[in-house]
Amino acid sequence: MPQLPRTATWHLPVPDLETSAYWDGTAHGKLLIKHCDDCGRDFFYPRSHCPRCWSSSTSWKEAIGDGVVYTFTIVRQNDLRPFKERLPYVVAIVELAEGVRLTSNIEGCAPEDVRCGMPVRVAFREEERDEGSVYLPVFRPA
Protein backbone atom coordinates (compact mmCIF):
# COMPACT_ATOMS: atom_id res chain seq x y z
CA MET A 1 0.00 0.00 0.00
CA PRO A 2 1.30 3.52 -0.73
CA GLN A 3 3.21 4.67 2.31
CA LEU A 4 2.17 7.58 4.43
CA PRO A 5 5.03 10.13 4.48
CA ARG A 6 7.63 9.12 7.08
CA THR A 7 9.04 12.59 7.71
CA ALA A 8 7.89 16.20 7.49
CA THR A 9 10.40 16.81 4.68
CA TRP A 10 9.72 13.65 2.64
CA HIS A 11 9.14 15.81 -0.42
CA LEU A 12 12.51 17.60 -0.36
CA PRO A 13 15.33 16.44 -2.66
CA VAL A 14 17.92 13.99 -1.42
CA PRO A 15 21.04 14.93 -3.42
CA ASP A 16 23.18 12.01 -4.54
CA LEU A 17 26.42 11.35 -6.41
CA GLU A 18 24.89 12.36 -9.73
CA THR A 19 22.99 15.42 -8.53
CA SER A 20 24.82 17.16 -5.67
CA ALA A 21 26.38 19.65 -8.11
CA TYR A 22 22.88 20.61 -9.27
CA TRP A 23 21.69 21.38 -5.75
CA ASP A 24 24.96 23.20 -4.94
CA GLY A 25 24.17 25.30 -8.03
CA THR A 26 20.64 26.20 -6.94
CA ALA A 27 22.02 27.24 -3.53
CA HIS A 28 24.13 29.78 -5.41
CA GLY A 29 21.35 31.03 -7.67
CA LYS A 30 22.35 28.92 -10.69
CA LEU A 31 20.11 26.58 -12.68
CA LEU A 32 22.32 23.84 -14.08
CA ILE A 33 21.39 21.47 -16.87
CA LYS A 34 23.45 18.73 -18.48
CA HIS A 35 25.21 18.89 -21.86
CA CYS A 36 26.41 15.91 -23.88
CA ASP A 37 29.96 16.52 -25.10
CA ASP A 38 29.55 13.91 -27.84
CA CYS A 39 26.17 14.50 -29.49
CA GLY A 40 26.03 18.12 -28.38
CA ARG A 41 22.52 18.02 -26.93
CA ASP A 42 21.34 19.45 -23.62
CA PHE A 43 19.24 17.30 -21.36
CA PHE A 44 17.34 17.25 -18.08
CA TYR A 45 16.97 15.73 -15.48
CA PRO A 46 20.72 15.49 -14.91
CA ARG A 47 22.34 12.06 -14.99
CA SER A 48 25.85 10.84 -15.65
CA HIS A 49 25.23 9.59 -19.20
CA CYS A 50 23.48 11.16 -22.18
CA PRO A 51 20.05 9.46 -22.45
CA ARG A 52 20.10 9.87 -26.23
CA CYS A 53 23.55 8.61 -27.30
CA TRP A 54 24.68 6.97 -24.03
CA SER A 55 27.92 8.91 -24.00
CA SER A 56 29.33 9.19 -20.49
CA SER A 57 31.13 12.36 -21.52
CA THR A 58 28.69 14.94 -20.13
CA SER A 59 29.16 18.29 -18.44
CA TRP A 60 27.18 20.84 -16.44
CA LYS A 61 25.96 23.98 -18.16
CA GLU A 62 24.28 26.99 -16.63
CA ALA A 63 20.85 27.67 -18.14
CA ILE A 64 20.03 31.30 -18.80
CA GLY A 65 16.91 30.82 -16.71
CA ASP A 66 14.26 31.85 -19.24
CA GLY A 67 11.50 29.56 -20.41
CA VAL A 68 7.85 29.18 -21.28
CA VAL A 69 5.05 27.22 -19.64
CA TYR A 70 4.52 24.03 -21.70
CA THR A 71 1.57 22.89 -19.59
CA PHE A 72 0.29 23.32 -16.02
CA THR A 73 -2.43 22.57 -13.50
CA ILE A 74 -3.85 24.47 -10.55
CA VAL A 75 -3.75 21.94 -7.69
CA ARG A 76 -6.73 22.48 -5.40
CA GLN A 77 -6.67 19.20 -3.47
CA ASN A 78 -3.73 17.44 -1.83
CA ASP A 79 -4.13 15.87 1.60
CA LEU A 80 -0.36 15.55 2.13
CA ARG A 81 1.64 18.04 4.16
CA PRO A 82 3.17 20.47 3.43
CA PHE A 83 1.08 20.89 0.26
CA LYS A 84 -2.23 20.82 2.11
CA GLU A 85 -1.38 24.21 3.62
CA ARG A 86 -0.33 25.72 0.27
CA LEU A 87 -3.48 25.14 -1.78
CA PRO A 88 -4.14 26.28 -4.40
CA TYR A 89 -0.77 26.24 -6.16
CA VAL A 90 0.42 25.79 -9.74
CA VAL A 91 2.46 22.82 -10.95
CA ALA A 92 3.89 23.31 -14.43
CA ILE A 93 6.16 21.78 -16.99
CA VAL A 94 8.50 24.57 -18.04
CA GLU A 95 10.41 24.45 -21.31
CA LEU A 96 13.71 26.29 -20.93
CA ALA A 97 15.22 28.40 -23.71
CA GLU A 98 17.80 25.61 -24.08
CA GLY A 99 14.96 23.26 -25.13
CA VAL A 100 14.88 21.01 -22.08
CA ARG A 101 11.88 20.69 -19.77
CA LEU A 102 11.49 20.48 -16.02
CA THR A 103 8.68 20.15 -13.50
CA SER A 104 8.28 23.17 -11.24
CA ASN A 105 5.88 25.63 -9.59
CA ILE A 106 4.71 28.95 -11.03
CA GLU A 107 4.73 31.65 -8.36
CA GLY A 108 4.32 35.41 -8.28
CA CYS A 109 0.96 35.60 -10.03
CA ALA A 110 -2.61 34.47 -9.45
CA PRO A 111 -2.92 30.76 -10.34
CA GLU A 112 -5.77 31.65 -12.71
CA ASP A 113 -3.44 33.91 -14.72
CA VAL A 114 -1.07 31.11 -15.77
CA ARG A 115 -1.29 30.13 -19.47
CA CYS A 116 0.45 27.68 -21.78
CA GLY A 117 3.14 29.53 -23.70
CA MET A 118 3.55 32.16 -20.96
CA PRO A 119 7.16 33.43 -20.65
CA VAL A 120 8.65 32.74 -17.23
CA ARG A 121 11.97 33.26 -15.47
CA VAL A 122 13.64 31.13 -12.81
CA ALA A 123 13.75 32.07 -9.12
CA PHE A 124 14.87 29.98 -6.15
CA ARG A 125 12.64 29.03 -3.21
CA GLU A 126 14.31 28.18 0.07
CA GLU A 127 12.92 25.25 2.03
CA GLU A 128 14.29 24.24 5.40
CA ARG A 129 15.18 20.78 6.56
CA ASP A 130 17.33 19.31 9.33
CA GLU A 131 20.40 18.99 7.08
CA GLY A 132 20.22 22.68 6.08
CA SER A 133 18.19 24.61 3.52
CA VAL A 134 17.60 23.43 -0.03
CA TYR A 135 16.86 25.84 -2.87
CA LEU A 136 14.23 24.78 -5.39
CA PRO A 137 14.07 26.30 -8.86
CA VAL A 138 10.61 27.82 -9.34
CA PHE A 139 9.36 30.15 -12.06
CA ARG A 140 7.70 33.55 -12.12
CA PRO A 141 6.13 35.50 -14.97
CA ALA A 142 8.96 37.09 -17.00
Partner: peptide
Protein backbone atom coordinates in the same frame (compact mmCIF):
# COMPACT_ATOMS: atom_id res chain seq x y z
CA UNK B 1 -3.51 8.82 2.33
CA UNK B 2 -5.66 9.79 -0.62
CA UNK B 3 -2.54 11.02 -2.42
CA UNK B 4 0.61 9.13 -3.27
CA UNK B 5 3.80 10.26 -1.50
CA UNK B 6 6.90 9.38 -3.51
CA UNK B 7 10.11 10.06 -1.57
CA UNK B 8 12.35 12.62 -3.27
CA UNK B 9 15.19 10.18 -4.05
CA UNK B 10 16.65 9.38 -7.45
CA UNK B 11 14.79 10.99 -10.37
CA UNK B 12 11.90 11.89 -8.02
CA UNK B 13 14.14 14.50 -6.35
CA UNK B 14 13.39 16.72 -9.36
CA UNK B 15 9.62 16.53 -8.91
CA UNK B 16 8.32 15.57 -5.46
CA UNK B 17 8.96 18.98 -3.90
CA UNK B 18 6.52 20.63 -6.30
CA UNK B 19 3.42 18.75 -5.13
CA UNK B 20 2.41 17.34 -8.51
CA UNK B 21 -0.30 14.91 -7.47
CA UNK B 22 -1.39 11.91 -9.53
CA UNK B 23 -4.47 13.85 -10.61
CA UNK B 24 -2.31 16.88 -11.39
CA UNK B 25 -0.08 14.82 -13.67
CA UNK B 26 -3.11 13.80 -15.74
CA UNK B 27 -4.60 17.30 -15.56
CA UNK B 28 -1.49 18.70 -17.26
Amino acid sequence: SANVAIDARGPAQFESAYGHTVIGRHAM
